[in-house]
Amino acid sequence: MLELREATVSYGKVTALHRLSLFVGQGQVVTIIGANGAGKSTTLRAISGLARLTSGEIRFQDARIDNLAADVIVSRGISHVPEGRRVFPDMTVRENLMTGAFRRRFGPEVDADLEQTLVRFPRLAERSQQLARTLSGGEQQMLAIGRALMARPALLLLDEPSMGLAPVIIDEIGSIIRSINQTGVPVVLVEQNAELALSLADYAYVLERGRLCLEGEAASLRDNELVRTAYLGV
């Protein structure tokens, strides 16, 4: 349903992403792992329209999207949870969630989705009138994911959801991602935590300095010698 063909992104003379081809199928969890600066975030930013391709193309549901503005791509069904959560600090939890549904017509359906999101994330329900800036890192991550789900996406992009979180919370985020995928939403997961990423994903791409260096079934990559030494640390 999502396909990158030889996607290249350059910032000035620096090539952040070099001819990456990537495919996400219906209902899959696909992960992109790699070190800092490997081009993982750039890949997601290119898909959601925050970064422009210098060459190549991106197709989503059989249509090219690489020339669309970020706010239009949201309407096409792609929701991006950016690195660092980026919740709106001076808006309440409830207001943050509602902005996620901005492209939809407000009414009973959106209200029902809000209720459902608060049921799914009970910690957000308790804090629904609190400003987002007062939440813990894990709660902000849940809020960012909940906000993205309010758009009813056909594809979810997650950038480093485990960053800076305690192991217990990382497990919780992991099971949230799994449960979202079980509702049929494909997920592209970018992670430095390769262990978490490979345990969740069906298929994985390994990037190094903007280039694809390895790809394959997540299960087989877990046993790959290079991945084990470079990213899993075993």
């Binding site: 329209g49 706010d71 309407s75 950016p82 902005t99 996620g100 901005f102 758009a151």
Partner: peptide, 22 residues
């Protein structure tokens, strides 16, 4: 809705764009 969109844009333009707020 549009009031929220305005505040969202003021607080984080990029994150607002990712919610479909132009």
């Amino acid at each position: 809705k549009f009031g929220w969109a305005l505040r969202a844009s003021a607080q984080d333009k990029e994150a607002a764009a990712l919610q479909g707020i132009s």
